[in-house]
Design a protein around this nucleic acid. Structure first.
Lengths: 228, 228
DNA sequence: TCGGAAGTGGAATACCGATTCCGGATCCCT
DNA sequence: AGGGATCCGGAATCGGTATTCCACTTCCGA
């Protein structure tokens, strides 16, 4: 590999993932997008175990094209997950735009399990990521946005003070997983659970929680401990 | 059971699964137990995707022995799950033995996610079963016990009336799944979430829940709808 | 418009794990 | 103890999917 060129245009950049992300030819770039979009759909409806060939078919390209863009299936999955962070980030930013902290928080915790239930398999992938988020990456921005939503809601007295953003994230992801099993066509069920948990998050002092409020950094550390 | 008799042993009984469960030779029966035990451990730590060969190795037998006892990997998984129902049933019955309905309920909802977090992959399997439980099977007994725990707690005014056993089961399974990802070595985390949800379940009237209380029959029906 | 670099489809290959098969070992009854 | 039914181990088989490879097509700059 390293397709030798007459005079090193880029060969000295060891981590030019960007170059791989954006192939030279227009049709190639287009195909890459198609594959990514197809993969998101396929993985959502059949889980990550869906054959690569299915993704290729759905994208209208050959398997070779898929594998050239994403050298490994794992790489494909990660790319799709990366795209999902951006979607969730929008969700969070939309919520943050609401001037009422309580409503903003509520809006996000309704949207989160909703989104995750529609992407069960990929949400599981997201949950097992345990690398620190590169600064200013979509994931990093998302974590900050969620932290802000929680902090703002707490400052406004809308939710109890003894929880952290990590707690919130896990609680509602749990809802997503539980309801996805029963069928994503049951938004009512999801809403019931979100309401119940919201009631629990509001119940200041009803119970003294063991442990400390959980933030994302701690959450990540806990995942790493897990030998896996 | 059905210890062989001298003539006409059993060959005409089409559904003598029991006979398969209890092979004639003592060493065979012993091996079967070993495989079951090994499978439980292996699946718990590596998920159901763990190779059959790994189970065999852990059990100290050849793959052939595993496959003879459980003609299919799926059959092996189901056998292990079946055993788990019995364990959970004990948990539920122990809880029911507590004369205080509130304490009994609480005790079970702490034990449930705890147990499921230690058997994540198998818990997922359990969640996707959508056949009616045969009357008096461990699973059937478990569902009844849980329903009783919920009903009793409601009658005592310990938890809100607008929820059903299906709601409870899904909520706490969600906790199990969420915390299992972060590492089953974090019982404190699990307890935090259980407390929060318990607060939410206590908050009578705090929020009017959409939909109706969910019982197990409805839950099963919802799973079936899901084309899969 | 042309030439060749860049990209493509999909058959061939590599791999991995479930299931089958059978010569040999083990048990259990007499 | 003897002998046959039963069971065992694990190599061979089979199936299914990820990945590689290359003859052929498409794009794009000159």
């Amino acid at each position: 590999m390293v397709p030798l060129e007459t005079n090193g245009p880029k060969s000295q950049d060891p981590r030019n993932a960007a170059a791989i992300d954006a192939p030279r030819r227009a049709d190639a770039r287009r195909n890459r997008e198609r594959v990514l979009a197809a993969a998101e759909v396929v993985f959502a409806e059949s889980g990550v175990k869906a054959p690569v060939e299915e993704v290729a078919r759905r994208a209208g390209v050959g398997v070779g094209t898929v594998c050239r863009n994403f050298p490994t299936k794992q790489a494909l999955v990660e790319a799709v997950v990366g795209a999902m962070y951006e979607t969730l980030l929008h969700e969070a930013e939309d919520a943050l735009a609401d001037p009422d902290p309580a409503r903003a928080f509520e809006r996000f915790v309704v949207a989160l399990p909703d989104f995750q239930a529609r992407h069960r398999a990929l949400a599981d992938q997201m949950a097992s990521v345990n690398m620190p988020a590169p600064a200013a990456s979509p994931r990093d921005k998302l974590l900050r946005a969620v932290s802000a939503l929680v902090a703002r809601a707490q400052a406004a007295g809308a939710i109890r003070a003894d929880i952290g953003p990590g707690d919130v994230s896990m609680l509602f992801s749990g809802v997503a997983h539980a309801t996805a099993v029963a069928g994503e066509r049951q938004p009512v069920l999801r809403e019931r659970f979100v309401r119940i948990i919201l009631d629990g998050l509001r119940a200041e002092g009803a119970t003294t929680l063991p442990g400390r409020p959980l933030d994302f950094a701690q959450l990540r550390r806990m995942r790493q401990q897990r030998v896996k």
